[in-house]
Design a protein around this nucleic acid. Structure first.
Length: 513
RNA sequence: GGCGGUGUAGCUCAGUGGUAGAGCAGGGGAAUCAUAAUCCCUUGGUCGGCGGUUCAAAUCCGUCCACCGCUACCA
């Protein structure tokens, strides 16, 4: 049954070049989006960049360029990264675009109209040198009564006018939301953190700043710009045409899932639903937090110099190989470690040996022993029926996993069938049947082609380029590659192209000192 | 400090009351269609420690230890 499916990546903050973490979250969303398209659904896949805030203003100043130029450059690098990773978004929202400012300001006006915003003052210890407020627990108190920030900068008590959002009014409604929609936040760990955070009591949220200018102006009070998160979160509405209620993309709201990094879970699970409730808008159905990558066991950081560039990795190992590894290595939602060794192991064992070799050994026999012509489905033995049944079941198993955002579990099930197919070909030994019973040999090879077709079809979201080639080799036409098409058998008699290895083994170059 | 997470085979992890699991790595064998790939069999764990509940606990409760994350207004 066809349905509308809307998915978003986190909105990327433009204070640095994209790294493997940004690629990971983009690819994960892309796999889910592609799977839904393959399954016949209408998909809106949204990504974008968050370009306002003091940090951007400062970074631009440090480079002596206007903030917009700075943001343009970094935003472009994120777009390029997604292109390099074969991530196909439908919308890319930049928070500096006019359409977005309009959406954010309209959202603000709605929330204000409904009485959830008031003007007061934000007070706290402020470091002029760092241009930031410092929390009570980060402050060092000195014997003479003075206070300093972690940076050592002196602090002064500052009172700054600020608009506040009545977040405290939403505590009960938020708890009710989590309770009535157990899947609203995933996975369980972050969910408990959010729930206990809300249960501890919510304070009203300061949602405007006067200390810098690089932001969306607060409607009716040009001295203030919006707190970046009020601005940034609104991008999800911008993507569906808000506030134009006649925009055809309106039907894409509410989003089915916001995929986010675990560090921004609170903004999406607490502030965002509260803003939407305050504006009287429908809430997203789900927020899902994924974990972080470490690199060779260490935290990725600029100072360690181990920040991974996704483009360089794709160039060295292959884009589909990289996509596969990122999706396979870790249960979506958990933290994981990136190491060359485990990437190479997975490439060689799972891609080259298990899958690539399965296709190659099957197709080379079709090419050599059947003159490359796909045979008709023959009389099925018990063994044939069993593996075909497993293949028939696979689409719904995979669909269920994707529905739960269990991206790696789906691969696990697909690989179970791949291993089973390798066992099947050994049991049936079509190379031995060649002389004894050529008709049976053709039947066995046909069963294998059908099984591999199912596998390749379902792997398209993960490895779009290579699976396209595999389906070409299997003689599957372009319009026979969606999930529903698996229910129709390929007609026999097609001539298959000459098979070629798709996943070469990766041999590490000798490292010379 | 508070809240939360993790701790299961050499490695990465699955397993929420009923005789310890998968993949990789290791060992033995088979096969030779294929990218020296594949298949079969197999070694290996007092499920972080201690205590408790139960006929029965990796699984529930308590406590301790180790590591990690969050602790709102700089995303």
């Amino acid at each position: 049954m066809k349905r509308q499916f809307t998915i978003t990546t986190p909105i990327f903050y433009v204070n640095g070049a994209p790294h493997i973490g940004h690629a990971y979250t983009s690819i994960a969303c892309d796999v889910i989006a592609r799977f839904h398209r393959l399954d016949g659904n209408d998909v809106l896949f949204v990504s974008g960049t968050d370009e306002h805030g003091q940090k951007v203003e400062q970074s631009a100043k440090a480079q002596n360029v206007p903030p917009q130029d700075f943001a343009d450059r970094i935003s472009q690098s994120f777009r390029q990264m997604q292109k390099d990773m074969a991530v196909q978004t439908d919308e890319f929202i930049r928070t500096t675009e006019a359409r977005h400012k309009k959406a954010a300001q309209t959202l603000w006006e709605k929330v204000a109209e409904n009485g959830h915003i008031y003007l007061d003052a934000y007070e706290g210890w402020y470091s002029t040198r760092d241009e930031m407020f410092v929390g009570e627990d980060e402050i060092t108190k000195h014997p003479d009564g003075s206070r300093t920030a972690p940076s050592g900068a002196p602090l002064e008590w500052v009172r700054e006018p600020s608009y506040f959002f009545r977040l405290s009014d939403f505590q009960d409604r938020l708890l009710k939301l989590y309770e009535e929609n157990p899947d609203f936040i995933g996975p369980h760990g972050p969910k408990r953190e959010v729930v206990s955070f809300v249960k501890q009591g919510l304070r009203d949220l300061s949602i405007s700043r006067t200390s810098f200018r690089w932001g969306v102006e607060v409607p009716g009070d040009p001295d203030h710009v919006m707190y970046v998160w009020f601005d940034a979160l609104a991008n999800y509405l911008t993507a569906v045409g808000y506030p134009d209620m006649k925009d055809p993309r309106n039907i894409c709201w509410p989003a089915d899932v916001h995929v986010v990094g675990k560090e921004i879970i609170r903004f999406h699970c607490v502030y965002w639903p509260a803003f939407l409730m305050a504006a009287g808008l429908p809430l997203p159905k789900r927020v899902f937090a994924h974990g972080w990558w470490t690199v060779e066991g260490e935290k990725m950081s600029k100072s360690l110099g181990n920040v991974l560039d996704p483009k360089a990795l794709a160039d060295e190992f292959g884009l589909d190989q990289l996509r596969f590894f990122l999706m396979r290595e870790v249960p979506f939602g958990g933290d994981s470690n990136f190491s060359r060794r485990s990437l190479i192991t997975r490439m060689n064992v799972e891609l080259a040996n298990d899958l690539g070799n399965l296709a190659q050994r099957t197709l080379s026999q079709v090419a050599r022993n059947l003159k490359g012509v796909l045979p008709e489905r023959g009389t099925l033995t018990e063994d044939d029926t069993r593996i075909l049944a497993q293949a028939t079941l696979l689409p719904s198993l995979t669909r269920n996993h994707i529905e739960r955002l269990a991206i790696s579990d789906a691969l696990e099930d697909i690989w179970k069938l791949i291993r089973e197919a390798n066992a099947y070909i050994d049991r049936q030994a079509p190379w031995a049947l060649k002389k004894e019973d050529p008709a049976r040999m053709a039947d066995v090879l046909r069963v294998l082609v059908d099984v591999i077709r199912t596998i390749a079809t379902l792997l398209q979201p993960y490895m779009p380029d290579t699976m396209e080639k595999m389906l070409d080799q299997l003689g599957v036409e372009k319009d026979e590659r969606h999930i529903a098409a698996l229910e129709t058998l390929l007609p026999g008699g097609r001539t298959l192209p000459k098979p070629q290895g798709l996943f070469p083994r990766f041999v590490e170059e000798d490292k010379q000192a």
